[in-house]
Amino acid sequence: MELGLSGKVAVFTGPGKGMGPAVTEAFAREGCRLVLAGRDLQALEAVADSARSLGAETIVVPCDVTVASDTQRLAEEALTAFGTIDVLVNMAGGTGPVGKTAWETTQEEFDQIVQLNMTGCFNSMRAMLPGMIERRYGKIVNVGGTFGMRGRAGRMAYSASKWGLRGITKSTAIEAGPYNVNVNCVAPGMVDGPRFRTKVMPGYAKAKGITEDEAIAAHAAEYALRRISTAADVANACLFLSSDVSRQITGIDMPVDGGWAML
């Protein structure tokens, strides 16, 4: 299937870590021109080098998405470099407190993750949308999480922030729809990778008194497809929702979790 993304300008927030490099490189392979934004410039430059090696024109812009003036400057630099913004993929985010109940979570912890996961997406969308609306074209993909579709003990603050992002996505989809702008949310479940293997699973295994291999198998057993998602799975969902192949899809939550959130 031809996605028709070649030559499109795609802006990414938070592409330097986690699943970010895999998602970014997938767009590079499709022939997109890329704008990479985040706080860790060393990580961003590494992803940019990889994208360029795949033939993608790529620029890096320092940006803290929780600061509205930073996201406004991001939009301006993207337009200066490429003349337009076709796609925005919001990946910048955090995990918040892990293993804390609602009553153990501090206000500072709660405010911090809501600021990053909700306000950060709001700021970048607010900066990019005027140009998309003027051109009557745009694709926005917010990367949420399945804990924002089903509650999870010990992850209240994170769950709340991702649940809120769904509301931001759906309301903006309604508002931007008349201008031919699609706004959707990709909700990854547990994604295999360095963090999953070196942080999440060792902690889970220790808490349960089992081996790490048993911990991975236990997680996989929760999913209908009996396997853990990969960063490539998430990248493919982002590509689909950023293309005109999905022209009639807006305001949705797309779980990429092997069948957990919707069961």
Rank of each mutant, 00 (worst) to 15 (best):
Glu2Ala: 10
Leu5Ser: 07
Leu5Asn: 05
Ser6Gly: 12
Ser6Phe: 08
Ser6Asn: 14
Lys8Gln: 13
Ala10Trp: 05
Phe12Gln: 04
Pro15Asp: 06
Pro15Thr: 05
Lys17His: 15
Gly20Trp: 00
Pro21Ala: 10
Pro21Met: 08
Ala22Gln: 12
Val23Glu: 09
Ala26Lys: 02
Glu30Trp: 07
Gly31Trp: 00
Val35Phe: 01
Ala37Cys: 04
Ala37Glu: 00
Ala37Val: 04
Gly38Ser: 06
Gly38Ile: 03
Arg39Tyr: 09
Asp40Leu: 07
Gln42Phe: 10
Leu44Ile: 01
Glu45Arg: 13
Ala46Ile: 12
Val47Gln: 09
Ala48Ile: 01
Ser50His: 14
Ser50Arg: 15
Ser53Asn: 14
Ser53Val: 11
Leu54Thr: 08
Glu57Arg: 13
Thr58Trp: 07
Ile59Tyr: 02
Val61Asn: 02
Pro62Gln: 06
Pro62Gly: 09
Asp64Asn: 12
Thr66Gln: 08
Val67Glu: 15
Asp70Leu: 05
Leu74Arg: 02
Leu74Trp: 07
Glu77Gly: 11
Leu79Thr: 08
Phe82Ala: 06
Phe82Pro: 01
Gly83Ser: 02
Ile85Thr: 11
Asp86Ser: 05
Leu88Ile: 00
Val89Thr: 03
Gly93His: 01
Thr95Gly: 15
Pro97Ser: 10
Val98Phe: 12
Gly99Trp: 02
Lys100Trp: 09
Trp103Tyr: 14
Glu104Tyr: 04
Thr106Val: 06
Asp111Pro: 10
Gln112Thr: 15
Gln112Ile: 11
Asn117His: 03
Gly120Glu: 01
Cys121Asn: 13
Phe122Pro: 06
Phe122Val: 10
Asn123Glu: 07
Met125Ile: 09
Met125Cys: 14
Ala127Val: 06
Met128Asn: 01
Met128Leu: 04
Pro130Gly: 02
Pro130Tyr: 04
Gly131Val: 10
Ile133Tyr: 08
Glu134Arg: 11
Arg136Cys: 09
Lys139Val: 08
Val141Ser: 03
Val141Glu: 02
Val141Leu: 03
Val141His: 04
Val143Gln: 02
Phe147Asn: 14
Arg155Glu: 15
Ala160Phe: 08
Ser161Phe: 01
Leu165Met: 15
Leu165Gly: 08
Thr169Trp: 00
Lys170Gln: 15
Thr172Cys: 05
Ala173Leu: 07
Ala173Asn: 01
Ile174Lys: 10
Ile174Arg: 12
Ala176Ser: 10
Ala176Phe: 00
Pro178Asn: 05
Tyr179Thr: 02
Asn182Ala: 11
Cys185Gln: 15
Gly189Gln: 00
Met190Thr: 14
Val191Ala: 10
Asp192Gly: 13
Phe196Pro: 09
Phe196Cys: 12
Lys199Glu: 15
Lys199Leu: 14
Lys199Cys: 13
Gly203Phe: 05
Ala205Gly: 06
Lys206Trp: 03
Lys208Thr: 01
Gly209His: 01
Thr211Lys: 00
Ile216Arg: 15
Ile216Pro: 08
Ala217Asn: 08
Ala217Glu: 14
His219Gln: 14
His219Tyr: 14
Ala220His: 05
Glu222Val: 11
Tyr223Arg: 15
Ala224Cys: 12
Ile228Met: 10
Ile228Thr: 11
Asp233Tyr: 03
Asn236Leu: 13
Ser242Thr: 04
Asp244Leu: 08
Val245Tyr: 13
Gln248Arg: 12
Thr250Phe: 08
Gly251Trp: 03
Gly251Met: 04
Asp253Lys: 06
Pro255Asn: 03
Gly259Leu: 03
Gly259Val: 00
Leu263Val: 13
